[in-house]
Design a protein around this nucleic acid. Structure first.
Length: 205
DNA sequence: ATCCCGAGGG
DNA sequence: CCCTCTGGAT
């Protein structure tokens, strides 16, 4: 079942990819922190300004919080995100010579960085295959399919990993996210247009 | 009104 | 387990 889902979505979205703009692991880390409860398009509208003013962890770590808040304001949660960005940058300088570590434990140890953000970094900036990105879209889609019954994102990921091929979890994540956004929407799921409707227990037509 | 590619804190 | 943080889109 799971592999059939992946096969069909891979056909439907042959060019699924990370929609955050970034030129380095540091930029993707910042952009991913900003992406919480916010669309990627809006994140991409503020990151050029953010990275022009503070192009490195060393620069961002000594930024004035109010200045960072002003730049990222439209992404929502701007106070908490500015605090996370600056704290994260300081931790990079203090513990990793200002570089972003390509390591799950080191990433999640950074303030403001959880498992979801770490998986995005590892899969998209470092081309590693540590886990599946579980966001609200993935949780909703897999729940509707009956693949997962958990609510905790980490447990959903653990339930999903054995169901899919071990390689290409980053690509799988994007397939699930794209379909979750475009078709298996939270509010108005477009089951009539869904390539998975015939094998989905929650499909409504 | 409800949701958006979350994480930290109580 | 709950709550909070926040603006924008639909």
């Amino acid at each position: 079942m799971a592999q059939e889902i992946e096969r069909r979505l891979a056909t439907l979205y042959p060019d699924a990819h990370c929609e955050l703009d970034f030129r380095s692991p540091f930029e993707l880390l910042c952009a991913t922190i900003l992406s919480a409860q916010c669309t990627d398009k809006r994140v991409n509208m503020v990151t050029p300004d953010l990275f022009r003013r503070w192009p490195s962890a060393a620069a961002l770590g000594v930024a004035a919080p109010e200045d960072v808040e002003a730049v990222i304001k439209s992404t929502g949660f701007f106070r908490a995100k500015a605090k996370s960005l600056i704290g994260m940058a300081r931790a990079l300088v203090a513990s990793h010579h200002g570089e972003v570590p390509a390591d799950m434990d080191a990433l999640t140890a950074l303030p403001g960085v959880g498992r979801k953000t770490a998986n995005v970094l590892l899969g998209n900036a470092f081309l590693r295959n540590d886990g599946i990105v579980v966001d609200t879209h993935v949780a909703r889609l897999t729940s509707r399919f009956g693949l997962t019954s958990e609510t905790d994102a980490v447990r959903i990921e653990q339930a999903l990993m054995p169901l899919f091929a071990r390689d290409g979890w980053a690509r799988l994540s994007h397939l699930l996210i794209w379909h979750g956004r475009r078709v298996c929407a939270a509010r108005k799921p477009r089951c009539a247009d869904c390539t998975l409707a015939d094998i989905c227990p929650s499909a409504v037509t």
